[in-house]
Simulated assay, not measured.
Amino acid sequence: MSSDAPDRILIVEDEDNIALALSHVLKREGMEVSRATDGEAGLKAIRDTRPDLVLLDVMLPTMSGYEVCQAVRADRELAGIKILIMTARGNAMEQRKGLALGADGFIAKPFDLSKLLERTRALLAGEAESSNA
């Protein structure tokens, strides 16, 4: 992908208010944003569109975010896609689980949109995610 092309972000989130806020902030930063509202649709969108980064909620209809993350990491063709897990269950055990399944980062809800944007930029730039949420 050329440096002129916008970063492609897929938001997999079933709560409209969260997805709309994320979409607004990311589009304002010049990113191309798409959305899926459940796990199965999210996995299909990942396979079909190959986004640069997936903002992935854990508690989703049809398939959990952890299951989506695991399926993406099991597919070699999707290996370069970054995954940032978002969850209301922000305890250390949940964070370790997400990272063990191959997520590149983890952020606990509720989160500050500027902090999420900062983490998004860092992951897109290839910077390692710190272990603190």
Rank of each mutant, 00 (worst) to 15 (best):
A74V: 00
E67I: 11
A103Q: 03
L55P: 13
E67R: 11
G39F: 08
V68C: 01
G80Y: 08
D57Y: 06
I83F: 00
T62Y: 09
R76H: 09
G98F: 01
K97L: 09
P51F: 11
S64Q: 00
G80W: 11
L84E: 02
I46P: 12
N91C: 04
G30C: 01
R73G: 00
A92S: 12
M31V: 08
M31F: 14
L99M: 02
K82R: 15
K44W: 10
P51N: 05
S64Y: 06
A88E: 03
L101Y: 03
V54L: 04
T49A: 14
A74L: 01
E40K: 12
G80N: 14
D57T: 00
S64A: 02
E94R: 01
D57Q: 06
E40F: 09
R73H: 00
R73T: 02
I46C: 10
R76Y: 09
K82I: 02
R35S: 15
D52S: 15
S64V: 07
M59I: 09
M63T: 07
P61K: 02
R35Q: 15
G105M: 02
L60E: 04
D38N: 15
K97I: 02
A71H: 10
K44R: 15
G30R: 05
E77I: 08
E67W: 07
G102C: 01
R76D: 11
K97H: 10
A92R: 15
Y66W: 13
R35F: 14
E77T: 15
V54R: 05
K44I: 15
S34W: 14
I85E: 02
L55C: 13
P51Q: 08
E94F: 09
E94G: 14
A100W: 05
I83A: 04
V58G: 03
T49N: 15
T49H: 15
M86G: 03
L56R: 13
M93S: 14
T87M: 04
V68I: 10
S64L: 07
A79N: 07
R47D: 06
A36Q: 06
